[in-house]
Design a protein around this nucleic acid. Structure first.
Lengths: 171, 171
DNA sequence: ATGCGATTGCGACTCAGTCTCAACTGGCGT
DNA sequence: ACGCCAGTTGAGACTGAGTCGCAATCGCAT
């Protein structure tokens, strides 16, 4: 495991405000950086519960808050319910393509869109602090399956009934 | 109150699937088209409770689902919790600028962004069914007040504890 | 090693939204 | 005009995600 630039950022962040790097925070951090790009709070909870030690749901959320606040992790509303989290590589930014069928999340970055956004803000005198941009639909892998199953609009209606959406295994 | 093109769309939608236009559905529809552009489920509940008749929360949500499904109303995740709904003028589409200070929601439409989105989808073989695009920050009216209060990053950190996202209107 | 503020787990709690089910009703068929 | 019955309703229980309060515990500067 390499030195983790992020870990030192986190350390610094904690130090700066007199917080402590507890074993729970460490464990969560490690788990998170072990591999997962996108994940949900309860996913982490389960993973840590089996692997490491008992850790409470509250602690997961509290720690995640710290990570978000320190800028290492991003909190996003994807899907029908709750938040999803994702690691943020410093300076990088991206938006999301989300498959209604398999839940896959594809990241994309389009500089031209970003700059158009800036123009929009300017036009309205709006100071943007953050943004989120998601397209929902059917990914390349699912398209054949879906289109053979039913025609366009039925699929659309079924996919986002407004209620149910499955929770997905983080790709 | 004019003929409401939307009402006939709704009627047709119900008819087509053997559903009924009950007095509750009517009342909700009327309330919604009386004036409100953006609203939350519980807002509607309260308004209908005082004004019209008793109507249950479940019915509000059920009816809203129908309206969303029929394409008349859009469901959006704005803010930290729950959904917001908005009337959709046929054929029109817009995205949102949301003020973290006053909650104001500004709609915008930028064709160039839309077409860039399409390009992104093509690139990934993604079939987009809907999208959401929101910028969060400080609106023109709030900017003077905020900037005099505190400097940039503190405001940013506090204002956007997480990303915000929305779902979409089916169609 | 000590002390004390930060942190933890627990479980109770909230809030938005969903579900169940018995009672009710819209509107077609006659 | 009427009856019928699938569709609809309200009430309240329920769920799931996330938050909170608190007593016990832990990190870490000294």
């Amino acid at each position: 495991m390499k030195p983790h630039r992020e870990l030192s950022i986190f350390r610094k962040y904690l130090e700066k405000r007199g917080l402590k790097l507890t074993s729970e925070r460490q464990a969560l951090f490690d788990e998170l950086f072990a591999r997962h790009e996108h994940f949900e709070a309860d996913e982490l909870l389960v993973r840590l519960r089996t692997k490491h030690k008992k850790i409470s749901r509250a602690t997961i959320y509290r720690t995640l808050d710290l990570l978000v606040d320190s800028g290492i992790v991003g909190r996003v509303r994807i899907g029908e319910s709750g938040y999803r989290y994702e690691r943020l590589r410093a300076g990088e930014h991206h938006d999301h393509l989300i498959c209604n069928e398999c839940g896959r999340v594809i990241e994309f970055f389009e500089p031209a869109i970003e700059s158009l956004q800036d123009q929009v803000c300017e036009k309205y005198g709006f100071l943007a602090l953050s943004h989120s941009h998601q397209l929902r639909g059917i990914c390349r892998q699912c398209r054949p399956r879906v289109s053979s199953r039913e025609a366009g609009r039925a699929a659309a209606a079924a996919a986002v009934p407004g209620g149910k959406l499955r929770i997905l295994p983080t790709a």
